[in-house]
Amino acid sequence: MADATRLPTTHELIEEHSTLLYRYAYRLTGDAADAEDLVQQTFLLAHQRGQQLREAAAARGWLISIVRNVFLKSIRHRNRGRSLEEIDEPQTTDAALDVPVHLELLQEALLELAEEFRSPLVLYYFEEFSYQDIAQQMGVPIGTVMSRLSRGKAYLKRRLTETTERERQTVPVQSRSLEFVLQH
């Protein structure tokens, strides 16, 4: 019978969480090589700091927080994207309706956002994290997470819509075929 209180080994953590961590890292960095390095550093740190993990159920959040911390260190001297002040309060516009999602454009739009918006958005759309989880990850109150999510989502939708509209007008055939691919 499996011991529910037993903490996972690093190899078990890799088996269970490496895919989620890689996707998160990729969405943060926008680069496959950087994402791979980020996840590798995360597991090395997790291995060194194994005693920090007190219960198996907390492993996923703990690993995500390591990914985020390593990423934040790596971008300390880089352009950190659009800040809170630069992003407007969300406006409801009908232009945001019926948007086909272009994968590259989605990543481009994410990278334009400051990490404080990007991280909660990614975790929100992964649908595996509650607002409480995200608030804990970010070290901010739940209201702040909701506000950032609201602004971030509005920005993302506006950005995806604007470009899609432009593509529709300039390259209708390519745009429509892309729409088809994404919708199926």
């Binding site: 080994t9 690093t10 190899h11 890799i14 088996e15 490496s18 895919t19 890689y22 996707r23 990729y26 969405r27 496959a32 791979e36 996840v39 590798q40 597991f43 090395l44 291995h47 060194q48 945001a96 309706l97 019926d98 948007v99 086909p100 999602v101 994968l103 989605l106 990614v122 759309y125 992964f126 649908e127 989502k153 993302l156 939708k157 995806l160 994404l182």
Partner: peptide
């Protein structure tokens, strides 16, 4: 739109052999 973004957000192909490389990296330390 939200559900489409969710699908797109998760659409990140994981490199082949990624987990094996992680195991190899962690293995000696273990």
């Amino acid at each position: 739109v939200d559900s489409r973004i969710t699908r797109a957000m998760l659409d990140v192909p994981v490199p082949i052999g990624f987990a094996d490389r992680l195991h190899a990296a962690i293995g000696p330390a273990l």
